[in-house]
Amino acid sequence: MPCFVFVEPSGDGWIVRGDFSDSPLDFTTGARAEQAARDLAHRLAEAGEPVVLEIRLRNGARAGRFLFPPYAGRPDAP
């Protein structure tokens, strides 16, 4: 079962939340939140976890959905 990570608006900032212990993480900009979520997704994929990253816009619409397959340190991984 994949780990889910979400980037979404929260009040006057943005949060990254999901199936990880430090959830949610607060950010002042969407770009910083998205970069942190992508970094987290890569780390989880490197550890062997499949990850689904979903990014939302201010109006709640989905901006993107990305799959990070587990690659567990394989040298031929993308």
Results as ranks from 00 to 15, higher is better:
R32C: 07
C3P: 06
P2E: 03
R65M: 11
R56E: 10
D12E: 15
R17I: 04
E46V: 00
V52I: 12
S23H: 08
S10E: 13
P78F: 09
P78Y: 01
P2G: 06
A72F: 10
S21L: 11
E54A: 11
V16K: 02
V7Y: 05
R74K: 15
E34H: 12
E34S: 13
S21Y: 06
P70I: 05
A77L: 12
G73H: 04
D12Q: 15
W14F: 14
L40V: 04
L44C: 07
E8L: 15
V51L: 06
F6N: 08
L40Y: 02
V51I: 04
V7T: 09
A72S: 13
F6M: 03
D22I: 01
R17T: 00
G30N: 04
V5W: 03
L44H: 08
F4R: 13
Q35W: 11
A37Q: 03
D26W: 15
V5Y: 08
C3W: 00
D19Y: 06
M1G: 00
E46L: 12
I15G: 01
I55N: 03
R62Y: 01
A47F: 01
A45L: 07
D12H: 14
G18E: 04
E46P: 02
R74S: 12
R43V: 03
A41W: 03
R38L: 03
D19T: 00
P75Q: 10
R43W: 02
E46F: 10
M1R: 09
V16G: 04
E8H: 13
R43H: 06
S21E: 11
S10H: 15
D22M: 10
T28E: 15
L67E: 12
S21G: 08
R58D: 14
R32A: 15
A72K: 11
F68S: 08
M1C: 00
R74D: 10
G13A: 11
I55W: 09
F68L: 05
F20K: 02
A72C: 05
A36C: 14
Y71R: 14
N59R: 09
P50H: 02
P50C: 06
E8T: 11
E49A: 09
P50N: 04
P75M: 09
V52R: 06
C3M: 13
G48A: 06
P24K: 03
V51T: 01
E49R: 10
P50D: 07
A33K: 01
V7E: 03
G13R: 09
H42W: 00
T28Y: 14
E54D: 05
E54Q: 15
E34V: 13
P70A: 05
N59W: 04
H42T: 05
R74H: 14
V7R: 04
L67R: 15
S21R: 08
L40G: 04
V5C: 03
P69Y: 02
P2C: 06
P75I: 12
L67H: 14
D76A: 10
D39W: 05
A37S: 11
A77K: 14
R74I: 07
I15H: 07
F68N: 09
G60N: 10
T28G: 14
A33C: 13
G13L: 11
F66W: 12
E34K: 12
G13Q: 08
A77V: 11
G30H: 14
D22P: 08
G48H: 05
R32L: 13
R62L: 14
E49V: 02
A37C: 13
R43T: 02
L40K: 07
